[in-house]
Amino acid sequence: MEKKISKNKNWIENFDPLEILSCGQAFHWDMEEDGSFTTVHKDQWANVKKEGKNISWIFSEKDQKEEWFSYFDLQTDYKGIIERIDTIPLMKEATEYGKGIRILKQDPFETIMTFIISANNHIPRITKAVKDLSRIYGKEIGEYNGRALYSFPNPEEFSKASQEELRNIIKVGYRDKVLIETGKRILSGEFDLAKAGSLSTEDLRKELLDLPGVGPKVADCILLFAYQRMEVFPVDVWIHRVMEEYIFGEKGSKKEIHRKSVELFGKEAGYAQQYLFYYGRAKGIGKKEKKPH
């Protein structure tokens, strides 16, 4: 292990592990009793804690700082992004509330599989499924606070899972079949993870939509969180309502809301979506009210 402390860096104001890891973009992490967070990326793990203007890090191995700083996107000027988008209605409140959010640079295979699991699902259930998949099919990569940590299974490791195990042990429900089929396509190279990154956003979206279990919202999440296509704007039911009621002031289909949101935010659409999602969910904005009996 290696310990590091980041002091008084210009990015610390816009860095909060709680906001980054709990805003719905990642599911492979734990909050510790001391308020720190332990997260897994590929075959490495890190523990991070924010204390005032300092960030304390524990890395699973030496010389991992640059990789983890890249994973947390510390080179990007989020303060500048916020200044450019907070003139739009609701954005000032959203960026102030979630100003510590950063968009992680995640592993493509893990992102594809976890966001297939995420469709019509709840974060606690998704998180448990990801941890169970890692524990059963991944590799043990170390321990922290007496708890074993596991990497998410790679395509070859994932191929050992059966449809019955995914449904009955991992509890992914109806997603079992599409997870198996998508895993096979990636393992065979039919969907090439390495070449995918060189495709244009539209071409990559088409390739992703061809994968079993990947719809428009999941495809955009993969584009944003695995391939850093910041011009995309994932639209789920929650964001749909927020945009209708507080940004555009009129109803529209998911496709229309997506198009108008991308036009509004341009190359920073993905950042805006994360601020709005985190703020809207926390404040109950856009929550559908139950009709009185």
Rank of each mutant, 00 (worst) to 15 (best):
F158I: 00
F158H: 08
S159E: 10
A161L: 04
E165Q: 14
E165N: 13
I169Y: 11
I170M: 12
V172P: 06
V172N: 01
V172I: 13
G173V: 13
G173N: 06
Y174K: 08
Y174I: 14
R175S: 05
K177P: 01
K177R: 15
L179F: 01
L179D: 02
L179G: 05
L179T: 00
L179A: 02
I180P: 11
E181T: 08
T182M: 05
T182I: 05
G183W: 09
L187F: 03
L187Y: 04
E190N: 08
F191Q: 03
D192H: 12
D192I: 03
L193C: 06
L193E: 04
A194Y: 10
A194K: 15
K195T: 01
A196V: 04
A196R: 07
S200H: 08
S200G: 10
E202Q: 12
K206C: 02
E207Q: 14
L209W: 07
D210Q: 11
G213D: 06
G215E: 11
G215I: 02
K217W: 01
K217M: 11
A219K: 03
A219L: 06
A219C: 07
D220N: 14
D220M: 14
L223Q: 01
L223K: 04
L223E: 00
F225R: 00
F225V: 02
A226G: 08
A226I: 04
Q228M: 09
Q228S: 14
M230T: 05
M230A: 05
M230S: 08
E231N: 09
E231H: 03
F233A: 09
F233C: 11
V237W: 03
W238P: 00
W238G: 15
I239P: 05
I239D: 08
V242Y: 06
Y246C: 09
I247L: 15
I247K: 02
I247V: 15
E250W: 00
K251D: 13
K251E: 14
G252H: 04
S253I: 02
K254D: 11
K254M: 11
K255N: 12
E256R: 08
I257Y: 03
R259N: 11
R259P: 00
K260W: 07
K260R: 15
K260N: 09
